[in-house]
Simulated assay, not measured.
Amino acid sequence: MQACLFLIGQSGPEPLVDVQALQRAATGIDGLRRLIVHEPVSGQIDPRIAAPDDAPSCVLQCYFDELAPLEAALRSDGAIHSALRTAARAELQRDTFRQQIMAVRKFTPPAAPTEDEQRTQRCTYLVAYEGPAEDLNAWLKHYLQGHPPLMLQLPAIREVEIYSCLDGTSGLPFVRAQAMQRNKVVFDDPGALANALASPVRDEMRRDFHTLPPYQGAAPHFAMHSKCVNLATH
């Protein structure tokens, strides 16, 4: 199971990193398999959930095949910190990003792109369940059995991933995020996302959501433009 580092940027109108500079710097991070840079979609996308006022200015996802190479890259003044300093538009502060390491569960949609169809830019709906749940095991079991089969039925869905907590060491100076779970669904563009969110499948997802075991905390939803770099093994 892959490990993914989430770096959630503070809210604000200005981008925190130079995306092209970060993509160039990422090629020097040993073990990094995929880098995704998410930046907010403007306007209302979801007909059922209001667009939040505190959307992060960016979210970075760094994928590794295992936890060990990710922890190595996360050492103090290590490869990830160096890449961020190279690409940052201002001095990095403790609250510039919130960081969280999570385990990745992938679910393959019927219309998943082949390698030849891989696009570097898509539109993503990111969701965080802050928690805690009264019984995390019961929550995960119920969610993983009921929700992904519905997600995979969303019109024009391209990717589905669900993330759960994974303890790991980090030398980055940023505050740790504590979400008990994160999700993402990926589409070709904001129009395709909007159509999916207005579909009857979304109604079924909402009904399933209301059967979830008890939990606390917010569940923010963010529509994001996503730029992806798939990196060669090194």
Rank of each mutant, 00 (worst) to 15 (best):
T124C: 08
L84A: 09
P220M: 08
Q153G: 03
P109C: 09
V37A: 06
T169P: 00
L84T: 07
A87F: 12
H210S: 14
F107L: 09
R85Q: 14
R33M: 04
R206N: 09
A25C: 02
A79H: 00
L212T: 12
A51D: 11
D203N: 13
R34W: 04
L150E: 05
K106T: 14
E115S: 04
K227C: 10
A21T: 15
R158T: 08
S199D: 07
P113H: 02
G131V: 13
R94E: 15
E161L: 11
I162W: 03
A232C: 02
A72S: 15
T120Y: 03
M180E: 09
V59F: 00
A219W: 10
Q93N: 06
G31W: 03
E134A: 12
L84K: 06
F209N: 13
R24H: 08
P220D: 05
S42L: 11
D189C: 10
R207P: 06
A198E: 02
L144T: 04
T233F: 03
A21Q: 15
R75W: 01
F6V: 03
A179W: 12
P173N: 05
L32D: 02
L136Q: 11
L22H: 11
E115P: 01
P220K: 09
P220A: 06
A72G: 07
F97C: 00
V186C: 07
D116W: 02
R94Y: 10
F107M: 11
P213Y: 10
A218Q: 13
G217D: 06
L5C: 10
L16H: 05
H147P: 02
